[in-house]
């Protein structure tokens, strides 16, 4: 039986979005008459087998080589290529991340294999794999057919998907894959490591994001104050980053942070597809925009049409009052 493999590596943990990718993989495996497996590169984090079983994986293959870690693309590509040659999987699925966007296509190049990023669905039609991926930031969906039967390499847009555990969790067969990685040397040398500072937008439960409608750099303070009043973090659309008003780490969207907060408040943001790609999965979206026809209102649950400079100060006041009430009650 052929395998649909979900690949994961991380610093002491499984990759973000591995649950959603396993769920995606299980649907594909069912359609393809294949088995779902989890491939873990680097030390296997505690609980990995249990998680794999919960999402229907029949196997867990581990490659516990210390060379396999984030920031080691040459080793990761080589290990994946060797693993594919050994097992000939039908498809290789990656929960998409910045590093996956390098490793997956390089692997495809190494193997001469089909590759599709931003996948949101995959199925089998007439024996052929069909992959749906977002294009134009999400304005369109492109359906690609995979030619040939080598492994198909897919980057999965996990924020658009739900994690769906199986009704009766199983116990995957755990195996170690031994690969020869000693000749691999990383060609890219890190001379100044990134230092993650403070909380990440990806983890925020509440995000208030500002866009070009703010009109001036100093008005971003409104966004920060509303974020503080709601107990959340401040984000931004790309033009604010391009203008240098805010740091790149604030950018929400296709080429910024892909977030999934409980509450997303968009202030003076038009709702371009490339922006929505980073926040459309929010549970509740609120839009504040002076243009009633702005795209953002199509995505929002609640909207206020008007000038953000008048509305946001009132919202800050209302949110603070609500907090004060809650604190009094408790």
């Amino acid at each position: 039986m052929s395998t649909v493999w979900v690949c994961s590596w991380g610093a002491g943990a499984l990759a973000r979005g591995v649950e959603e990718t396993l769920s995606f993989g299980r649907r594909l495996a069912t359609a393809a008459g294949a088995e779902l497996g989890l491939l873990v590169l680097g030390a296997t984090p505690p609980g990995a087998a249990e998680l794999a079983g919960r999402y229907g994986a029949a196997t867990l293959d581990a490659v516990p080589d210390p060379k396999l870690a984030p920031g080691r693309p040459d080793a990761l590509v080589e290990a994946l290529a060797q693993a594919c040659r050994a097992r000939a999987p039908r498809a290789l699925l990656f929960p998409q991340s910045v590093e996956v966007r390098l490793v997956a296509p390089r692997l495809a190049g190494r193997l001469g294999a089909a590759v599709v990023m931003n996948a949101i669905d995959a199925t089998v039609e007439g024996g052929k794999l069909r992959v749906t991926a977002a294009a134009y930031g999400g304005d369109t969906h492109a359906v690609y057919e995979v030619v040939g039967d080598g492994p198909a390499i897919l980057g999965v847009s996990t924020m658009a998907l739900r994690a769906e555990p199986v009704a009766t969790p199983g116990t995957p067969a755990v195996q170690e894959l031994s690969l020869e990685l000693s000749p691999v040397e990383e060609r890219i040398r890190t001379v100044e490591p990134a230092k993650a500072e403070g909380p990440r937008l990806e983890d925020a439960a509440v995000i208030v994001a500002g866009g070009r409608g703010l009109g001036a750099r100093e008005h971003f303070a409104l966004v920060e104050q509303l974020a503080a009043a709601l107990g959340g973090m401040a984000g931004a659309s790309r033009p604010l980053v391009d203008e240098g008003w805010v740091d790149a780490s604030r950018q929400v969207g296709l080429t910024g942070r892909i977030t999934r907060p409980a509450l997303y408040v968009a202030v003076g943001i038009s709702g371009a597809s490339q922006h929505m790609a980073g926040c459309a999965a929010a549970k509740t979206i609120v839009a504040i925009n002076k243009d009633p026809d702005a795209a953002i209102f199509k995505h929002a649950r609640y909207g206020i049409v008007g000038d953000c400079h008048e509305i946001v100060p009132e919202l800050i006041r209302a949110a603070r009052e609500r907090r004060a009430e809650l604190e009094k009650e408790s």
Binding site: V191, E192, A194, K195, E197, R200, A248
Partner: peptide, 8 residues
């Protein structure tokens, strides 16, 4: 995602 990184 963790901020700027310098590589050579």
């Amino acid at each position: 995602p963790d901020g700027d990184e310098g590589v050579e």
